[in-house]
Computed example of a mutant assay.
Amino acid sequence: MSNSRLTRRATLLGAVSALATPTLLRAQSTDAFPQVEDPIREQTPVRRNISSFRQQNWQDHFETLGVGCLLADISSRAVHYWGGDGQTYRLYPSSVPMTEELTKRGYTKVVRKARNPSWTPTASMRERDPTLPERMEGGAGNPLGTRAMYLTWPAYLVHGTHDTRKIGRQSSSGCIGLYNQHVEELYEMVEVGTQVLLL
């Protein structure tokens, strides 16, 4: 009797293993994971502390609300938006510049907006990476994602990204990046003239 029980148990385990094998092989497939990402030990640690995403008040950073205010908090990697109606408030996780040298801080404003923006890498970006194109039209693979809001500072933007691994990291050449679905929502609310502070 005990032999047949072991045989049934072994048969059942063997059947479950056979059924699970294709799923396990798919999960271990290298197609599911990035091929060019740096080893995690070489990446900058990311603060994933919920307290970094505390609601803030626009009055702590701006003199007037105007048509709206946008705060890019570089240390907590979060973007805060207050609408000109005095009621609308949004908080989004963001990517921030890779180094302090690439980081610009201070007050500016939104001067232009674009859907599916084209991308023209700066001379310094192309110097750091000569494989970059001179220009890339909007669409899949474009580093600016689906929406962009241009600031008074040349080559500094708040934009989306197709590479979702960048959000929450020091990964940009100076811009503030958002998930595409977040930048699309923000784009509809932000007006040209919106005050911006990179802090």
Results as ranks from 00 to 15, higher is better:
residue 197 L to Q: 04
residue 164 T to S: 14
residue 137 E to Y: 07
residue 100 E to S: 14
residue 16 V to N: 06
residue 36 V to M: 12
residue 31 D to H: 12
residue 151 L to H: 10
residue 100 E to G: 02
residue 22 P to F: 05
residue 27 A to H: 03
residue 132 L to G: 09
residue 10 A to P: 01
residue 64 T to E: 15
residue 57 N to H: 10
residue 107 Y to G: 01
residue 40 I to H: 09
residue 5 R to H: 06
residue 138 G to K: 11
residue 1 M to T: 08
residue 67 V to R: 14
residue 197 L to S: 03
residue 117 P to K: 03
residue 15 A to W: 11
residue 181 Q to G: 00
residue 147 R to Q: 14
residue 25 L to I: 10
residue 129 D to N: 15
residue 184 E to T: 06
residue 60 D to K: 05
residue 96 V to N: 03
residue 95 S to V: 00
residue 100 E to K: 14
residue 68 G to M: 10
residue 164 T to E: 15
residue 100 E to F: 03
residue 107 Y to A: 05
residue 52 S to C: 08
residue 55 Q to H: 09
residue 137 E to F: 09
residue 124 S to A: 13
residue 9 R to E: 10
residue 77 R to D: 02
residue 171 S to W: 00
residue 40 I to T: 14
residue 4 S to W: 11
residue 120 T to R: 13
residue 175 C to T: 07
residue 29 S to Y: 00
residue 30 T to R: 12
residue 140 A to C: 02
residue 10 A to M: 11
residue 168 G to Y: 10
residue 10 A to L: 13
residue 113 K to S: 04
residue 73 D to V: 01
residue 94 S to G: 02
residue 55 Q to Y: 06
residue 136 M to I: 07
residue 8 R to V: 13
residue 100 E to I: 08
residue 16 V to A: 14
residue 164 T to R: 15
residue 143 P to V: 03
residue 78 A to T: 13
residue 40 I to N: 11
residue 70 L to E: 02
residue 59 Q to R: 14
residue 193 G to C: 11
residue 196 V to A: 11
residue 154 P to L: 04
residue 39 P to S: 10
residue 186 L to G: 03
residue 193 G to I: 12
residue 46 V to F: 08
residue 196 V to P: 09
residue 182 H to D: 15
residue 98 M to C: 09
residue 71 L to N: 06
residue 52 S to Q: 13
residue 82 W to G: 02
residue 16 V to K: 01
residue 39 P to T: 09
residue 64 T to W: 04
residue 194 T to I: 07
residue 23 T to N: 01
residue 72 A to T: 02
residue 19 L to R: 05
residue 37 E to P: 00
residue 49 N to S: 14
residue 4 S to P: 00
residue 146 T to F: 01
residue 67 V to P: 08
residue 42 E to D: 15
residue 145 G to A: 06
residue 170 Q to K: 12
residue 189 M to E: 12
residue 97 P to A: 05
residue 106 G to F: 04
residue 140 A to D: 12
residue 20 A to R: 01
residue 162 H to G: 05
residue 77 R to P: 06
residue 96 V to S: 02
residue 22 P to T: 01
residue 109 K to C: 09
residue 55 Q to L: 05
residue 8 R to P: 00
residue 62 F to N: 09
residue 86 G to R: 04
residue 139 G to C: 07
residue 159 H to E: 07
residue 5 R to S: 13
residue 122 T to N: 09
residue 67 V to M: 01
residue 160 G to E: 04
residue 21 T to C: 08
residue 6 L to Y: 13
residue 67 V to Q: 13
residue 155 A to M: 07
residue 79 V to C: 10
residue 155 A to F: 11
residue 10 A to Y: 07
residue 18 A to Y: 05
residue 21 T to H: 02
residue 9 R to F: 15
